[in-house]
């Protein structure tokens, strides 16, 4: 008898994604669902999807969800978590949601050290509204609102969320990953699992930023999009762990950076 080694995670509904071919959202959805299954927390998890491409995430995740207004996910998640401290609460946010319209809500939820998990999709562009500049759009990158490329004097610089948030004393675990190769997908899953475990253990605010391909708005094919992450995007947004207060206690004399 054949042994089933791969299937739909229980925390995903039987639904077909509306995401474009090559989009990173579908992969990340799956990873989050797999982690929820593996940690056996489906029944106690409440998710907060954003406004943006993932606005319909409640059609895919088979966990309780409440859709937040644009950018307000971490505030809504704070309300849920403080009311039900033993539930697992995550907000799922895009770059506009987290780093532009909702930077205050995200920043202060992090600074308060809310015991929630933020899944942050950075694709350097506004996907759902049709390819406008995001706070994380690269310098010189062309979007529909930066037709001549992002201009540092007019548009400012890409916002580096992990670098910023890791400076906040309220944060516990912060890592930047990507999903442009099987290896990076596996790595991202580990990071997401660590972030949820951080919350389960009551250790505080965790944020996983995922550099995610958007072939449609990057005007690249799926393979070139994955390459673009390696060759361009991750130069501006280096991958790695930015904050890990879960790590074993350091040797005496070694100062904590924050």
């Amino acid at each position: 008898m054949a042994k089933k080694v791969f299937g739909r995670p229980k925390s995903l509904k039987e639904a077909i994604y509306h995401y474009c071919p090559g989009c990173g959202h579908s992969i990340v959805h799956r990873l989050v669902a797999e982690v929820i299954d593996e940690l056996d927390i489906r029944g106690i998890t409440i998710g907060v999807p954003p406004a943006g491409c993932a606005v319909l995430a409640y059609n895919y995740f088979d966990v309780d969800m409440i859709e937040a207004q644009h950018g307000r996910g971490p505030a809504t998640a704070t309300g849920i978590k403080r009311s039900l401290p033993d539930r697992i609460v995550f907000s799922y946010q895009g770059d506009g949601d987290l780093a532009a319209i909702g930077i205050a809500e995200s920043f202060h939820a992090a600074n308060r050290g809310e015991n929630i998990t933020v899944i942050f999709i950075n694709n350097a562009v506004y996907g759902m509204t049709g390819g406008q500049m995001a706070p994380t759009t690269m310098l010189e990158q062309k979007t529909t609102t930066t037709p001549a490329g992002r201009n540092r004097t007019l548009d400012g610089y890409p916002v580096k969320v992990c670098e910023l948030f890791s400076q906040l004393r309220g944060t516990t675990y912060i890592e930047r990953c990507t999903v442009n190769s099987p290896a990076s997908v596996n790595k991202t899953k580990k990071a997401i699992k660590k972030a949820f475990q951080c919350q389960i253990d009551g250790k505080g605010f965790s944020l996983i930023e995922i550099l995610s391909p958007c072939p449609t708005n990057w005007k690249l094919n799926a393979i070139d999009s994955c390459k673009w992450i390696d060759e361009v995007m991750s130069k501006e947004f280096p991958l790695g762990v930015f904050k890990d207060n879960l790590a074993p206690v350091k040797k005496t004399g070694e100062a904590d950076p924050c």
Partner: peptide, 26 residues
């Protein structure tokens, strides 16, 4: 009982939305 001094009025209303969704009086 939960009290939060929020970072803005916007955050406050969205916090009570989250709490209300859980069935808490807000």
């Amino acid at each position: 009982g939960v009290f939060i001094q929020s970072e803005s009025e916007i955050a406050a209303i969205h916090m009570i939305i989250g709490a209300s969704a859980t069935g808490t009086r807000v």
